[in-house]
Design a binder for these strands. Structure first.
Lengths: 204, 204
DNA sequence: GTCTATAAAGAGATAGAC
DNA sequence: GTCTATCTCTTTATAGAC
């Protein structure tokens, strides 16, 4: 962050560019295979110039991951608070999760996949943020189960794991330039999670 | 492979050890962050000695990935051929997929996550094997849909993507020393995929 | 089949000028 | 805020002895 004339802390433009470039390159090549020189080239500057903006390469991975988790936690938390019944809260969660994770797909993919390249301290911190987010998911699932909106014959932990399976793997294949919008995908995943892929037996 | 006295090609013991160690280390640290020296240390030899067994580091990633895909394709193909109705074939697919992917979890995780570190030619070949496997999944899903066992209001492509989401993300969190056996997990995922997580409305 | 020794290249990061 | 120049370390891989 940078202090501007108005006294409020703001992220400098180069730093924002840098985080965006890092997200893209870390996702495309992996964190380890992305060099400082690639990052500099992406910004059109020399590699040494990067070190005016960051302390070390790992800082980018760390800040990226923290920001991605703060984003999804805030977006999903807000969506859930705004919804009425237990099942509506679950649907709001799925929508907000899909929308946020795919709107910032590079950062979310990197956060989920490159965590192991962080220093032990920072890794623990990021894991903590992830755990915090997963507890939010757990609460919504447990409440839906308590309200008889989700099946009672399956452990809540398993319902959560299956939901996160369904949501998280999407970052591997979703293309924002494809035919499916994020909202449409969220609809499909919601239906399949709640009602299943099986044909409904005729109710007559 | 190595030629023994009986004239048949067999994999040498060191090579098998090497592939196992590579799967574990590549999964734990990532391919790029795993050094030849770590691999050698794991086998109790010097790093230069590894080059008697392999041409280069990337060979290990390549062979690991091809073997993992051959395994799951064979196991799932056989399971599907042995099952009767369309829905039973789908259930057999899920079981065989979960059992195989988690029995050789390191190799499967590495194959799915470290693909980008392969040379372009080899990457294309591995992608080809993955596509081949996914087509098998697509056939089973499409047949179940045609037999009215899976819902007709959702594009088969989406039913496949959701199924692979549900199955593949499991490699991130499954622990073989945990309370849940592979078979039990497969049962849960089958039920949740077909019937959904929603509570069944009372049929009375 | 494994060793010691080392070549060759590339990595992250710093110093100091402008 | 960016540059040129460079240090230092680690990496993959090879050569040749045993």
């Amino acid at each position: 962050v940078d202090t501007t004339g108005n006294g409020r802390a703001t992220a400098s433009s180069t730093r924002i560019q840098l985080l965006r470039a890092a997200a893209m390159l870390f996702r495309r090549n992996g964190y380890e295979a992305t060099t400082i020189r690639m990052l500099a080239r992406q910004l059109g500057i020399q590699s040494a110039s990067l070190y005016y903006h960051i302390g070390k390469k790992e800082d980018l991975l760390y800040e990226l991951s923290v920001e991605a988790l703060r984003e999804i936690d805030a977006a999903v938390g807000e969506a859930v608070r705004g919804a009425g019944t237990a099942i509506e809260r679950l649907e709001a969660l799925i929508h907000a999760h899909v929308e946020t994770a795919l709107a910032y797909q590079d950062a979310h993919a990197v956060m989920l996949l490159e965590l192991r390249s962080l220093s032990p301290d920072r890794m623990q911190e990021v894991i903590g943020l992830r755990t915090r987010y997963e507890r939010l998911v757990e609460r919504v699932v447990a409440e839906a189960q308590a309200a008889d909106a989700l099946r009672g014959d399956t452990a809540p932990r398993l319902l959560v794991l299956a939901l996160l399976n369904l949501l998280n793997w999407t970052i591997f294949w979703y293309r924002s330039d494809g035919a499916l919008s994020r909202g449409e995908l969220a609809d499909v995943l919601t239906t399949l999670y709640v009602d299943g892929a099986g044909a409904r037996p005729p109710s007559g």
